[in-house]
Design a protein around this nucleic acid. Structure first.
Lengths: 154, 154
DNA sequence: AGTGAAAGGTCTCCGCA
DNA sequence: TGCGGAGACCTTTCACT
């Protein structure tokens, strides 16, 4: 779908703050409310806007520890892997889950309150995935974490 | 701050869809509009709601490749590291950036359109960080990726 | 903390340029 | 595509329990 400058401006604004009113957005992209609203509708219907959510504070939810878990495996039975994937996805502590190229087969990002919390998830993981090689790295500091994607490539 | 069941229900709903109206939310947590609205205000003011944003589709923005970049360094001059951190944070392709424990010092998650795009960022990184040891892993498949945090620990 | 009603804004749709 | 206006809907406040 074609995206012009105003569409990109809208996306830039909405990525940072989805509470802006249609009128505010219209002002900022130098357009009146109706066409602005139509653009947003189009961007949501057939375009890049997937959803609108509240982002919560990890600290306030007591899941301030981020752990990256790298998993290697020899097992490549599709059915087994599918079950593994389902089990892992069902854990709410697993917030990201990738199949990787290279030496690592899977990379998980999990959030937990503390080391004990991590250990519980770790046990669930090796339960779900038996005989796998699992290595974990703890994030000491979150220097940047954004849901804002670059708009420079479209 | 104390959070009861209804607060958690609200957070669960708003994490998944922030377009729900106060009336909808009120219905779902079996409360009327006003106290529901007050709860949301409180959760946003002094609680876990940080912001409300639109989530965009990576594919539609032509940044469908996710790369994890692990950086090791011997350098620990604080001023230098601060400059490095600033430079890295300024890159819109870098969506996450952690200081890690263990063998890796920093872990970046970057999004790019293709290998060339990755190479450009790679060059910027080693420019910003000279003599560092950098190793990259490409995500082949995004199996799970959510902004929804678990509410089980608060 | 909760309710219901009323005022003030926004969103959404329509006809038109 | 763009504009402005009218009605519906939603948000926000207020008086009261």
């Amino acid at each position: 779908m074609g995206m012009d400058t105003k569409d990109k401006q809208l996306l830039k604004l909405l990525q940072q703050d989805a509470t802006l009113s249609v009128n505010d957005l219209a002002d900022r992209i130098s357009l009146s409310a109706t066409p602005t609203w139509k653009r947003i509708q189009r961007l949501a219907r057939e375009g890049p806007i997937k959803k609108q959510v509240c982002l919560l504070d990890r600290k306030a939810l007591n899941v301030n520890i981020t752990v990256f878990v790298a998993i290697k495996t020899n097992q490549h039975d599709p059915k087994w892997l599918e079950k593994f994937a389902t089990n892992v996805c069902d854990l709410p502590e697993v917030v990201e889950f990738y199949r990787m190229s290279g030496k690592i087969d899977y990379l998980l990002k999990i959030v937990v309150p503390d080391i004990e919390g991590y250990d519980k998830i770790y046990k669930k993981l090796i339960n779900a995935a038996a005989l796998y090689d699992v290595s974990s790295s703890f994030a000491m500091e979150e220097i940047k974490h954004t849901t804002v994607l670059p708009l420079d490539y479209c």
